[in-house]
Design a protein around this nucleic acid. Structure first.
Lengths: 137, 137
DNA sequence: TTCGAAGTTTACGTTTGCGTAAAGGTAAGC
DNA sequence: GCTTACCTTTACGCAAACGTAAACTTCGAA
């Protein structure tokens, strides 16, 4: 039987405001261990209710960012650097560093874009070749 | 002073036909160690002239494939599986397995495509915000 | 033929990103 | 107040992808 989280503070609210670690683990299909690991690496810092971790909507977004970064092949350290800079507002040196990082990333992402388009096309061609050949038997 | 490889066998040929390990290392900006590692993992098998490795144009292409795979976040084992299947012609079971793999990859690649487009857009927005804010000072 | 740059094998070391117990604490529902 | 699902910390383990050092060998140029 499923345990009910914590009674909604805003009873008829549309958007959840709090999540347990396993809520997020299930939603994003990862393990709780991974989420705790991201915390160890200072990528996310949920609040605590006693000893238990409580994740806000903002925390959830951060987790999404982390996973997106991972899918793109960034290391946790790189993701942390970007996310951290992301939050800083108006500090000049930080801003320039972030712009610098963005442009490096942009080049790398554009290359990946090319790679992916190339591969998807290769796959299309190959699949057609294979299936027609398959039919021919 | 740079050492000259082996005298071109086809003197006025347009395309090189042979490469040393450091030729490829330089061209693709990786270490020789990495290339040897790919060989250890059976991803590439250059011929030998005595004890030295000699890479053909085909080997060079394989290396390109490996690096492209890496940029897309595939493991060497995955890259090997794809490359290996790639070469097989006409064998039914292999063909079906390859189609299966392709379709799994395709989904993952499409997700990455989304991620990249999303991020590139985010970067554009963020850069604009940062530079305008920067100007405003 | 001697030198030096580049190549070779062998093998242990390192980082990253979690997996996986172990050993227990907490709270909702009966 | 007891059960039970879920949470916690601590810590060792492990595979992947090379780095790096050691100790040669090879070969083209001088």
């Amino acid at each position: 039987m499923l345990r009910v989280i914590t009674k909604e503070l805003t009873p008829m609210s549309d958007e959840k405001t709090e999540y347990t670690i396993s809520d997020l683990a299930k939603e994003f299909e990862i393990t709780s261990r991974s989420i705790r690991h991201y915390e160890d690496e200072k990528l996310i810092t949920p609040t605590r209710r006693g000893v238990h971790r409580i994740y806000s909507a903002r925390d959830r977004v951060r987790l999404q960012l982390i996973l997106r970064g991972k899918r793109l092949g960034f290391s946790l350290a790189e993701i942390k650097e970007i996310i951290d800079l992301y939050g800083v507002e108006g500090e000049q040196r930080q801003t320039e560093r972030l712009l610098e990082l963005i442009n490096v990333r942009r080049e790398s992402l554009k290359q990946q874009l090319k790679d992916i388009k190339y591969l998807l096309n290769e796959f299309d061609v190959l699949e057609e070749k294979l299936t027609s050949e398959h039919q021919a038997k």
